[in-house]
Simulated scan of single mutants.
Amino acid sequence: MTRPLRLVGVSGGLHPTSKAAALTKRLLELIADQVHVEQHLIELGRLTPQFASAVSRSQLPDAVEAALTAVERADVLVVATPVYRGSYTGLFKHFFDFVHQDALIDKPVLLAATGGSERHALMIDHQLRPLFSFFQARTLPIGVYATDKDFENGRLQDRAVIQHAALAVQRALPFLEFTPPNVSGNRPLDDLACVHASAA
């Protein structure tokens, strides 16, 4: 039996009610509806106090190291960040600065972002794609952007955005058939204490 894909979401939201986290969860659910996955969510807001002042990976506590390992071992990534001043948050970038530069080669990455208005919608193509192109990741064809008005009670509710998210996942499916090899010797994802699992 083929093992499930390791699907890891990373939310750059800094607050417990982060819309970026809500969008990430929705995208993870949509993928899990189509593909057999082992699904995990990393919320950077929960880890911020543990890595914000670190300048090297050797300084990071076990919880942050476990999150980085989960990202590096994932078969598929979903990443979402709030937009501030036209770009991703500094802490989102700081977290990915610790990811090994070769760890994401050929890894499919679905990009998403949230912002206060449509003004920031192009941030996905102008900021996130170049970042993951540096890692030589396979950024998936359609990104998903949502504004504050698209959410209600902490969940994505706007029909047009939901349909766009579903289309993004459908267009991503052919790319998910390819999974990069995992580095041997790493711990199973089940042992990564800091990664918040969500039901598949």
Results as ranks from 00 to 15, higher is better:
L189D: 07
D191I: 02
P130A: 03
L68W: 04
L104A: 05
L140P: 07
G185I: 03
E72D: 07
D125M: 01
V99G: 05
A66I: 00
R6F: 05
L173G: 07
H120D: 12
T89C: 06
A22T: 11
G143M: 05
P130M: 02
L41H: 13
R129H: 04
L44Q: 01
P49E: 10
A193D: 12
A63H: 09
A63W: 02
L111Y: 07
A80V: 09
C194A: 15
L14F: 04
A200K: 11
P82A: 04
V78P: 05
A21D: 05
T17Q: 15
P180R: 11
H36C: 04
L41F: 08
I31Y: 00
Q127W: 00
N182E: 12
P82L: 11
P188Y: 01
T17P: 01
D106P: 01
V195A: 10
A193L: 13
C194E: 14
V71R: 05
L60N: 06
H40I: 01
V144I: 11
S53H: 12
G13C: 05
P61M: 03
I105Q: 14
Q163C: 00
K93V: 05
M1N: 11
R46A: 14
Q101R: 14
I31K: 05
K107W: 02
D125T: 02
I31W: 00
Y84N: 10
Y84C: 03
P82M: 12
L192T: 07
A70T: 08
V37G: 06
T89I: 08
A160L: 14
L44W: 00
R6A: 11
V109Q: 10
R129C: 07
A166Y: 00
